[in-house]
């Protein structure tokens, strides 16, 4: 009995074993919840799946990808990713700078107010936005554009207004999170640099352009990278607006398409094939993006 205990203590305390024990939770979670599903998705993408039966059908599922819905989904997701990044990088930087400035009053209030939406569930928020973008003249969105003299719009049945509605929901939700990233980046910039610039006679714009932006570059790269992932994997927002069927695919993203194919039409094999392409697309887009930012260049 004692020897077992001794062995146990020795084993657990040994420098060779302990690290593996500490990382094992991650490794196990990774193997069971990430690696296994990925491998099984790859296998399923070559199969026709029924109840308890699976038949290999070669590349059939991948051949089906050449259809108009996949093209529409790809376009919607890409468009959405593009617009969200275009707004969700400059705008939070600007607001972060304002919130970081000593001159701004009620900073803490604004910080928490802007962050609040990130804490709500997409579905709950989506319900609100779904009604806000209703088509009667009395809905929130139509009342607002009514003030500008524009007639009521059928927001969710037309491709451009639909994209605007999606991007607005996304911006509303993620603005606060991105501001937090940039705020922490800003607080890491030493004041001494700004003071030196003051002495050299730099104005606010110069300081922003030559000190703030370059110092924030790692944060910007990080935010863009996760936004690319976030944009392409977007599903809940589209689901909140249209559930599973968006007219003429105007709001159907790649993940909505996977969902519809896999669950609504019970075509798991084809859904897996779409999933694999999504993985590849996100990988390629991010590699290009990181390469452009010079992340793979060797340090001089």
């Amino acid at each position: 009995m004692k020897s077992i205990k001794n062995f146990y203590q020795k084993f657990i305390n040994s420098k060779k074993v302990a690290p593996y024990i500490f990382v094992s939770p991650f490794i196990i979670v990774f193997l069971v919840f990430y690696l296994y599903p990925i491998i099984s998705t790859i296998i399923m993408s070559f199969q026709e799946i029924g109840f308890g039966e699976a038949e290999f059908i070669g590349l059939e599922n991948y051949k089906k990808l050449f259809n108009v819905h996949y093209k529409n989904a790809l376009l919607t997701s890409t468009n959405y990713t593009f617009w969200t990044i275009l707004i969700l990088v400059p705008l939070p930087i600007l607001l972060a700078v304002l919130l970081n400035s000593d001159k701004t009053k009620f900073k803490n209030f604004f910080r928490s107010a802007i962050f609040m939406p990130a804490l709500t569930s997409v579905i709950v928020a989506g319900m609100f936005f779904r009604y806000a973008f209703g088509e009667q003249a009395s809905t929130l969105a139509n009342s607002l554009i009514g003030l500008l003299g524009i007639g009521p719009i059928t927001w969710l049945q037309d491709s451009i207004p639909a994209m605007i509605a999606l991007v607005i929901l996304c911006v509303w939700r993620w603005l606060g999170v991105n501001i937090i990233y940039f705020l922490s980046g800003l607080q890491g910039i030493p004041d001494a640099i700004y003071e030196a610039a003051d002495i050299d006679g730099a104005n606010s714009w110069d300081k922003f352009k030559y000190i703030t932006i370059p110092s924030l570059k790692p944060v910007i790269i990080y935010v863009i990278t996760i936004s690319v992932f976030g944009g392409y994997k977007m599903f809940a927002e589209s689901y909140a607006y249209w559930q599973t069927a968006t007219p003429n695919d105007i709001g159907m993203t790649i993940v909505s398409y996977i969902y519809q194919t896999g669950f609504n039409n019970f075509n798991m094999g084809f859904a897996s094939a779409i999933g694999i392409t999504l993985l590849l697309i996100v990988l390629v887009v991010n590699l290009i993006q990181l390469n452009l930012f010079g992340l793979f260049k060797k340090e001089d």
Partner: peptide, 27 residues
């Protein structure tokens, strides 16, 4: 039903989804 465990005794299936559950040779 696909994984073979966890289904209830009785369930409601809406008509436009019903065909999914009759797919294949083993209902």
């Amino acid at each position: 039903l696909q994984s073979g465990v966890g289904a209830p005794d009785i369930a409601d299936i809406e008509i436009s989804k019903f065909a999914n559950y009759l797919k294949g040779n083993t209902p």
